[in-house]
Design a protein around this nucleic acid. Sequence first.
DNA 1: CCGATTGCTGCAAAGGTTTGCAGCCGAAAT
DNA 2: ATTTCGGCTGCAAACCTTTGCAGCAATCGG
Lengths: 387, 387
Amino acid sequence: MTPATLDEGPAVPATIRDVARASGVHISTVSRTFSAPHLVNPETRSRVLAVAEDLGYRPNRAARALITGRTHNLGLIIADIANPFFPPLIKAAESQARQRDYHVFVADTNEDPIAEEELVHALAKQVDGVLLCSPRMSNSLIEQLSREVPLVVINRQVAGLPCVTMDVGQGARSAVEHLLTLGHRRLALLSGPRGSWTSREIRRAASAAARSGGAELTVLGPNHPTETGGGALAEQVRRNEVTAVLAYNDLMAIGLIEGLDALGMRVPQDVSVVGIDDIALSRLTRPKLTTVATPTAAAGRTAVDMLLSTDSVIARGTRGGGRSGSTDDRRTTAQVMLRTELVIRDSTAAAPADGRHRPGAQVVVPGPHRPAGPGRPAAATGGVVAS
Amino acid sequence: MTPATLDEGPAVPATIRDVARASGVHISTVSRTFSAPHLVNPETRSRVLAVAEDLGYRPNRAARALITGRTHNLGLIIADIANPFFPPLIKAAESQARQRDYHVFVADTNEDPIAEEELVHALAKQVDGVLLCSPRMSNSLIEQLSREVPLVVINRQVAGLPCVTMDVGQGARSAVEHLLTLGHRRLALLSGPRGSWTSREIRRAASAAARSGGAELTVLGPNHPTETGGGALAEQVRRNEVTAVLAYNDLMAIGLIEGLDALGMRVPQDVSVVGIDDIALSRLTRPKLTTVATPTAAAGRTAVDMLLSTDSVIARGTRGGGRSGSTDDRRTTAQVMLRTELVIRDSTAAAPADGRHRPGAQVVVPGPHRPAGPGRPAAATGGVVAS
DNA sequence: CCGATTGCTGCAAAGGTTTGCAGCCGAAAT
DNA sequence: ATTTCGGCTGCAAACCTTTGCAGCAATCGG
């Protein structure tokens, strides 16, 4: 035995042909051993498996994908991994996918719609479907891209496409009502990034709720949905003399609190702040953040399920599905909306008594919502609507 | 024109053959148009490009990978995406890779060494190399896996493999010296997860520094490197009557501060806490966290560069590189260690004067380090050591 | 004992691309 | 006028796997 050759792992990977040769069967038998074990004699099968193990053989997924048309990979496109809102969603999607023998490839767009489109293109050929999370691009572009690769949209509703959204409208309404109950009459809304469906939804609901409550709501934005983005608005918030603020997300809310602090304004004594998302961080800041909890993990799971559901394009292979251009196979595409819940913590309080707006009135225990508590609300499953 | 057929996007993707047919050239010319443009007549080239654009042709990366052996994808395996330490690294790696026309696929292991190994296997055939970040598995397993796919290890040193690490040893030393200067003599170290090279390194350096400073250091752990993990140690910290704590990372430090707060102990008055990492969050908590800044983005960039460097396995294709088992092509594998820096904020102060340990002694301005400041230290580039 | 059935395996095409080699044509060199 | 060369293009093999079809042997039913 030559000293330099310890035959631990082969430098060049073993192919199906090597296994076939070494175990004295045809390559098709080897193939079937892995992809249709019930079709091969148990004795042969175990021999092949032993040889394969011995040679360190692993099926070449590229070659398999080439013929089956299915890669067993999913793409997950995220606006910003650094936003703590996303990791729970990512983890949930990954674990759900793993259960069905799929892998998830995560990509980050830095909140850039251009990067978003490029990533969909780049991913299209290497995954069986993509989860498009919090897209910033236009609906029409999304529809167009959906013809290139099966798509499930998260945090946005696009007609004709499978979507999973959180009911941020209801969340924003609850938040505003909570603030009204505390006596606030001059509110501000820190809106999110341009192109965000969520932001539009929040704005619509918050405006309606404020109006019907006889309060004034000024919208500040669009903004970059980060601490920095929130912090930069402190000055404007002060200038507008509002007593309560609803932020597009927790990160902005936290940034705003920091910014207000720097200006000498205290939360919640001088101004109340409520966020949206209920990221882990919102329990760690001082004051603890009142916020609208969104079921992000459930969203990730649901989206994967929708992508992989049997009536999805992915379920049937590429081999038989040679449909021509006709559009008559339009299936019912599900749209799911997950429930949200207001979690009241320490960043909201009664409106200051000095102002001209309802001095110190009606400090009331928040109506239908759970008082406080560090625990998360139970995961909402939401209703399904077929379109 | 039939009403149901608006020929926007083809339902079935165009192949290189379609483009060839439509532009009246051979498929090899089309291929060259994309992969070796200088070899084809400019006129032909532009015609092919136009047709390709028109048909919405995109090269099938699986087929390309099948023959070139290079997928132009990189894998990035992360212990826990939810840990804010990682996102900057991920983003840096992605942008660096994108510049070289590579895509990065991120995967999360949930701090599980088994999942880690499986992910490397799963990724091995679909990427050209993987960045293994903060591995929890054994060195020998890493070495073994490195024969399956080119590997760059981040946050660990493995002999013979390219590695990029942060000088947490120096960081821990600085932190301990800082605490000693403040008069602390009873210290605790919250160690990290089992299998973490970083944790071992910190422990070694902190112990040495404490010993040579005549202080006592008790090690608590191993622990799960999260807020929860840190918070759970508050009780033990109190029981040990230490006056200062160095945590494996910022998350644990922050969790500990929360936990201490719940026990009625105040930071930094009663006990000083310093973290490691300098995640964005550490500037947002109260008190702001004193911590050891690690150049995570630089680490991500460097690791990608090392993986894609010309003398790497990836640089040469699979076609010519049919080397047999001989190991005589052992190249020099670089190991890079990035500088760290202590950032002093508000979670550290002079040791309480009541204890029996050096009452109120020597509150001194921290020696060689920058005083405070919210700004990040300049990105350290670190030295290169050939092994 | 014959025909049908069952269980297993081999054969070969197919999937989309890259690339070494050879061929063609026109221009420059001799 | 012949040779040489360079620029461009076509040919066909190769990459590794899956899968419809056919073949084979053994078993079963009648």
